[in-house]
């Protein structure tokens, strides 16, 4: 190809669109960044995007087109520097194009920052594709995110993960976490909180009241007893310290009709004491599986029982407990408590 130039804007619009359609996604994105006109030309193609996964902190966005994905990874400075706000301007961006089918192929390019800050990059990328599924991971470290710029920059997320990277987060970090939750909690289906400090203005009661499909909690100061309201379908709680009494209270609330949407619960952590199973079963009217062998000598104790709530819904509970770690699985079943199949879990 000779070095002379090609007057692309002088081509008829429909030809421009045809040319763009033959290009790879990262090339289309590169074209869209050039000018407002080129951006609107790409927008008019209405290109579908299956899923966009955004990571803030060490910012990146993965655009999933099916058998192809394009990963944008912004470099914020030397020594793997993190971003602090959406106004931060990256040094450069690494663009990784990956094809999985029919043959695996991967190419990485380095682009300049295009004079855009992180917020503008995200806004641009979400403006040029039609995507119904956005997911985000916020790694909170020295982060300052205000509610308005969060709402202006990001779409409604289906899934959010918030990871607090400091044992004792700063005031700004706590405020940023609160802002993220306030901005997106009404729309999110799947929420995961990792090491997020739960406080008065950011309590588990607030989160539990939200309509969620899945809630994943990993918190240092969470108490099972705080889960008085839980409006989720699936709940996973890990790294928690709990007692048989806490579990008993939780299940008792369920049998009385609380947590009506709950389909499954997994609690994984340290069980304070598991010497007296009667504490767990007290008042539940549960049917306990008859133990076939004496497990008093076993390292891992297993307890299986079924219980029924006030609306006749049956749940299977499986408790594994050992010295260091215990796991409780609660699953709502469609089966009748008298069905022999109910014990197959």
């Amino acid at each position: 190809m000779s070095n002379s130039k090609f007057p692309f804007p002088r081509l008829p619009d429909d030809i421009c669109s045809e040319v763009l359609k033959t290009m790879e996604y990262h090339e289309i994105i590169a074209f869209s960044i050039i000018s407002k006109k080129s951006s609107s030309m790409v927008q008019s193609l209405c290109l579908p995007l299956i899923r966009a996964q955004i990571v803030m902190g060490w910012p990146e966005i993965c655009l999933d087109f099916g058998s192809i994905n394009v990963l944008f990874k912004w470099k914020m400075g030397e020594n793997d520097k993190e971003m602090t706000s959406l106004d931060d301007i990256p040094v450069s961006v690494a663009v990784k194009f990956r094809r999985f089918n029919p043959i695996s192929e991967s190419k990485t390019f380095t682009w300049s920052n295009q004079g855009k800050n992180i917020g503008e990059w995200v806004q641009h990328l979400r403006s040029i594709f039609r995507c119904g599924c956005y997911e985000a991971t916020f790694c909170v470290l020295n982060t300052r995110l205000d509610i308005q710029s969060l709402r202006n920059t990001f779409p409604k997320f289906r899934k959010i993960v918030i990871m607090c990277l400091r044992n004792e987060p700063t005031e700004h970090e706590v405020q940023s976490i609160g802002n993220i939750l306030r901005a997106f909690l009404p729309y999110v289906e799947n929420l995961r909180l990792q090491r997020v400090p739960l406080q008065e203005n950011l309590s588990i009661q607030h989160i539990g009241m939200t309509n969620l499909k899945e809630l994943h909690l990993e918190s240092l100061n969470l108490k099972l007893g705080d889960l008085s309201t839980l409006n989720v379908e699936k709940c996973i709680i890990i790294r928690i310290q709990f007692s048989l009494l806490d579990l008993n209270r939780f299940f008792k609330l369920w049998t009385k009709g609380s947590y009506p949407k709950l389909q499954s619960l997994l609690v994984h952590g340290s069980l304070e004491s598991f010497s007296d199973w009667n504490i767990l079963l007290k008042g539940l009217n549960a049917v306990v599986e008859r133990s076939t062998a004496d497990d008093s000598q076993r390292l891992v104790k297993v307890k299986r029982f079924i219980m029924e709530n006030s609306r006749g819904v049956c749940a299977q509970v499986l408790v594994h407990s050992a010295e260091m770690v215990s796991a409780v699985t609660f699953t709502v079943s469609n089966l009748n408590r008298l069905s022999p199949e109910i014990w197959k879990f």
């Binding site: 130039k5 090609f6 007057p7 692309f8 804007p9 290009m23 790879e24 090339e27 590169a30 074209f31 960044i33 050039i34 000018s35 006109k37 080129s38 190419k107 390019f109 380095t110 682009w111 300049s112 295009q114």
Partner: peptide, 16 residues
């Protein structure tokens, strides 16, 4: 413009 950066695309395709 295969594999080109936005700046290179602007130049090759004469995008204002």
């Amino acid at each position: 413009v295969k594999g080109k950066s936005p700046e290179e695309i602007r130049e090759i395709w004469m995008i204002p």
